[in-house]
Computed example of a mutant assay.
Amino acid sequence: MSEPIIATEHLTRRFSRRDPDGRLGLRRTTLTAVDDLSIRIHPGEAVGYIGANGAGKSTTIKMLVGILVPTSGTVRTCGRDPLRERRQLAREVGVVFGQRSQLWWDLPLRESFTILGAIHEQGRAALTDRTDELVTTLGLGDFLTTPVRALSLGQRMRGEVAAALLHRPRLVILDEPTIGLDVLSKQQLREFLTAERGTHGTTLLLTTHDMGDIERLCDRVLVVDHGHLAYAGTLDDLARTSGAKRILVVDLAESASPLTGIPHTEHLSSQGNGVRQQLAFDPDRTSAAKVLAAVSERAEVLDLSIEEPDIEDVVRRIYHSRM
């Protein structure tokens, strides 16, 4: 098997901070953000790295790219030491932070690509070809000459992804890439990342709270909680391991009594005098189609939606199962 594109061994990062209750502010406490993390990600994989807020995801990413120094343990990214070979590693990794921008705020989007191409020492012909490819596949043509500050959030995020992929990195790290995007923008971005991976063999590491991103983009998931690796495996096994349930939300044609007694479901709530109701079900025991069929026998359904398990609840269940 080829060398892992990401490999960590007992990776740990601690932060020291002032204790606000300490006398004169002199007392300090230690926070462990990442704790004894050992993971392997191989070239061409798409892996979701998920967990609740404060679980250590962003800290891990910063160590993978050399922004933070580990307290202990080792990390190799693209076969390199991120600290000693940070400049070389930058040519092989693209990073998108949903809350931060690598684009020049007051310049047209196209100018950011030109500057980034120069930073990565891309030749004019190679930069033009790659820019044209990204403009076409990400649908950037209508706003290439628009200053970044004037772009919508969806347009800017597509621009951020293009900027991260401009130099054809082996590894793309996406930290909440679809945060705040509308449904259409999310779908366009997901389709592009799938195509990019299929065409160029790009490795994806994705952190997100959006289970839709994980379902559509990732082969497997790593769940971290309080800095510990709590789970590694497929998304289907994750749901089974946690015992989390999906939720069917139905809007009925008229008021109805609570839809209790439907096999393998739990009635969660009724709203609007029973016009809207929520049913939780275990996907290992039944399917959304079967639950909907049973509901339809008792009431006319006008609309429906399916809510995935809340990621924080999934992580909490897994973490407690290991205690």
Score class of each variant (00 low, 15 high):
Leu204Ser: 01
Arg240Val: 14
Asp225Cys: 11
Leu205Cys: 09
Val249Arg: 09
Arg216Thr: 13
Val224Met: 10
Thr203Cys: 00
Leu217Ser: 11
Arg246Leu: 14
Arg220Ala: 11
Gly227Asp: 09
Arg240Tyr: 05
Thr234Gln: 11
Asp210Glu: 15
His228Lys: 15
Ile247Leu: 13
Val249Phe: 04
Gly233Asp: 15
Gly233Gln: 11
His228Cys: 11
Val223Phe: 05
Ala239Asn: 13
Val223Leu: 04
Val224Arg: 01
Cys218Tyr: 06
Thr208Lys: 00
Ala232Gly: 07
Asp237Arg: 07
Ala232Leu: 09
Arg246Trp: 03
Asp219Trp: 04
Gly233Pro: 11
Leu222Arg: 04
His228Trp: 09
Val221Ser: 03
Val224Phe: 08
Ile247Thr: 15
Leu204Tyr: 11
Leu205Thr: 07
Thr241Lys: 08
Ser242Trp: 01
Leu238Pro: 01
Leu205Asp: 10
Leu204Val: 06
Asp225Trp: 14
Thr234Leu: 02
Asp219Cys: 02
Ala244Trp: 00
Ile247Gly: 13
Leu229Asp: 05
Asp213Trp: 02
Leu206Thr: 10
Asp210Asn: 15
Arg246Ala: 14
Thr208Gln: 00
Leu217His: 10
Gly243Pro: 07
Ile214Leu: 08
Leu206Cys: 13
Gly201Cys: 08
Ile214Val: 15
Gly243Val: 14
Thr207Tyr: 00
His209Pro: 10
Ala230Glu: 11
Met211Tyr: 09
Asp237Phe: 06
His226Gly: 06
Tyr231Cys: 06
Tyr231Ala: 01
Tyr231Trp: 05
Asp210Arg: 07
Arg220Pro: 05
Ile247Lys: 02
Thr241Ile: 08
Ile214Gly: 01
Leu222Phe: 06
His209Trp: 06
Leu229Val: 10
Ala239Leu: 08
Leu248Met: 15
Tyr231Leu: 05
Ile247Cys: 12
Ile214Cys: 01
Cys218Thr: 14
Tyr231Glu: 04
Arg216Asp: 12
Val249Pro: 12
Ile247Arg: 10
Gly233Asn: 12
Val221Glu: 03
Leu217Gln: 08
Thr208Trp: 00
Asp219Arg: 11
Arg246Ile: 04
Asp236Gly: 15
Leu205Val: 15
Thr241Gln: 14
Met211His: 13
Thr241Glu: 15
Arg240Phe: 03
Leu235Glu: 12
Arg240Cys: 10
Leu217Thr: 04
Leu206Pro: 01
His226Glu: 12
Leu205Lys: 01
Arg246His: 05
Ile247Asp: 14
Gly233Leu: 11
Arg216Lys: 15
Ala230Leu: 15
Leu248Ile: 14
Gly212Ser: 13
Ala239Ile: 13
Asp213Phe: 02
Gly201Thr: 00
Leu217Arg: 05
Ile214Gln: 02
Ser242His: 04
Gly212Val: 04
Gly212Phe: 07
Asp213Val: 03
Gly243Ala: 10
Thr234Phe: 00
Met211Lys: 09
Val221Asn: 02
His209Met: 14
Leu217Ile: 02
Gly201Val: 00
Leu222Pro: 01
Gly233Thr: 09
Arg220Phe: 07
